[in-house]
Design a protein around this nucleic acid. Structure first.
Lengths: 353, 353
DNA sequence: CTACTGAGTGAGAACCTTCTCAGTCGGTGG
DNA sequence: CCACCGACTGAGAAGGTTCTCACTCAGTAG
């Protein structure tokens, strides 16, 4: 029970062969006679030998490790995506090096740098800022493939990306409400400050999901010939309390909306709570739509109408994509940008005006 | 934009110094004159130099990486604990290598082995089986400290552990119901098959949380002088549907329970749903208690009474503990077994008989 | 002037593998 | 008998750091 790990050299010595032969016997490469293989295996077992991956990686140039950078593992969205990633990469023999940035750019830069130094074979990144790409570019320049998930980043044209079609997702939510006869439709969003940019029609690359969803809201209204009433766009931070307040602000308006879209599951739970606390009957007095089909959305009464994102699939695809990139290696294909589509699940929190 | 990463040797050559000096200038160890430091830094910047952690780790013997093994990252319980871990370890300069076992022993053994080979500095493990310890012992034998979370494992006496006092947690839930006058109290559990073992009083080490909670249920009833009616112990697997069925089985009994305890948040949501679907009024017709204080428990009507586990704290403590072990290094303290206490949060899903 | 100090530097070993290249040795075809 | 082959093995380099040890050189105390 020493603290010392046996090395290949010691195994070789015990088996009375060279390290080269011992390596061949244990590593399964090259030719070894049956007799010596057995001797080496026995010696390895006796010493409790574990190969040193660091040394191996130094010479092979591959670590069989991929880096995953997310803003918040505790968010079911990322937790589920992460599960999708590991489910795909683990059978392929890849381990995941995880970093949590809390949405802070500095933390993300640090994480990407450290992962580069640890020589990960590739990275999956949910970026903190849509416009900051220097650290990602540096990594790609060093030959580390990157797959962006959930959020596009402008300035890393070579990186693949797997995102959700948030434009359509939000538009579908709004269209659903329009069909039900709603005309004053509010939205609770983290991207309220970007309303002007969104309305002026920026390219997608520079926008994060919440902003893209806001754009979907704007375009859907526009397509229906309705104006965008800025008082119906309520800003919230990324927490339930803030969404709770935003919902109350909307409902306190002289002309409150008859329906509200939340661009996120956290915001939806805050808004739902606000409607409950005011004793409003959904959907009779106000209709509500959330994002992400979490288990609780069918436990509440009324059940919550949501736009369901393919969260697990997002992670699984990203993992598969990265593996392809890593193993494809020398054959650089053009970067791919995959958009998964979200699905409206109509339930009883939405109803006719 | 080559695929090649500059090495220390190239930096040294460009700065016209030895690798030793270049290493000192960049690594911040040893003595270097101001002038040469600047020259080296300039050369490093020009080449976009990134130190190779693998090489460094080979010589220093430390990777600044910790392994985390959980059964399911997508479960909010583990996702939150994981967040606690990274929040503590990341500022200390440690990265997390994550593995998801799906509760399968083989996957866990593989993960622990691979992590050992990758020379993690320590591991945090939520084990798949309470009795399988060989792989953990091997790792500890090689000098890798291990902190067990959520689940004790018999056979690794040297490992620290951070668990929740599930015995008390479950007992409090039952006591709460007893105080409300309930006498027929059901339980939905994953450890139904271990009822006999639990009743015969096995030591804690060999039991997993669900079994320990079942024991808490048994002892609380015993303390109140009530018998354990085996028909009131309903088994379920780790999913909502199974819990849904279990709840229905309980309610279909000739003498159904007037109150039910679920030993897990997933089971609670299934049971809640079952009660809803039968049109039962809670707590008038049946009282229900769940585990883990998740956001949805206050959105449903009635709000769910729960036993709240200090999930985030569990992870944060485990992280801190492991860091202590790693840095303490040569001073081996006795293994510590910390039990965090859970808290009953009484809400409106429980009421008088 | 000598001896000593201390800052700065370089040569080279060590960490543990994989991989290339050059053998050795028995067997086989000419 | 020779050339050759094929199966197996070993010596040693390579990979990129850190660290030890020895060295130089200027400054300083005696």
């Amino acid at each position: 029970m020493t603290t010392h790990e046996a090395s290949l050299i010691e195994v070789a010595r015990l088996a009375e062969v060279s390290t080269a032969t011992a390596g061949r016997a244990l590593g399964g490469y090259g030719k070894v006679s049956e007799r010596t293989r057995e001797r080496v295996l026995a010696a390895a077992a006796e010493l409790g030998y574990r190969p040193n991956s660091l040394a191996r990686s130094m010479v092979t140039g591959s670590t069989h490790t991929i880096g995953v950078v997310v803003t918040d593992v505790a968010n079911p969205f990322f937790a589920t995506a992460l599960r999708g990633i590991t489910d795909v990469t683990s059978p392929a023999g890849f381990e995941v090096l995880l970093a949590n940035t809390g949405g802070e750019l500095a933390a993300e830069q640090r994480a990407v740098t450290v992962m580069s130094e640890k020589r990960v074979d590739g990275m999956i990144v949910a970026a903190a800022r849509p416009g900051e790409a220097a650290h990602l570019k540096h990594a790609m320049g060093a030959g580390v493939p990157i797959v962006l998930i959930d959020r596009q980043v402008s300035g890393v044209p070579d990186a693949d990306s797997i995102t959700v079609d948030n434009d359509r997702a939000a538009a579908e939510a709004v269209e659903h409400l329009l069909e039900l006869g709603h005309r004053r439709i509010g939205v609770i969003t983290e991207a309220g400050d970007q309303l002007a940019r969104v309305r002026s029609g920026t390219r997608r690359r520079g926008l994060f999901p919440s902003a893209v969803r806001l754009r979907g809201y704007v375009t859907a209204l526009g397509a229906a010939g309705l104006p965008v009433d800025e008082t119906l766009v309520a800003s919230a931070r990324y927490d339930r309390e803030s969404a709770y307040d935003a919902m109350n602000r909307l409902l306190d308006l002289p002309e409150p909306p008859s329906a509200v879209v939340c661009t996120d599951n956290v915001l939806a739970s805050g808004a739902y709570r606000a409607a409950q606390d005011r004793g409003l009957r959904m959907p009779a007095e106000v209709s509500l739509i959330g994002f992400d089909d979490e288990p609780w959305t069918t436990l509440v009464r009324p059940e919550l109408t949501v736009v369901e994102q393919p969260t697990y699939d997002l992670g699984a695809r990203a993992g598969q994509h990265l593996l392809d990139r890593i193993t494809a290696g020398a054959t650089p294909r053009r970067p791919q940008h995959i958009q998964l589509s979200a699905k409206l699940v109509a339930r009883s929190s939405t109803g006719p005006r």
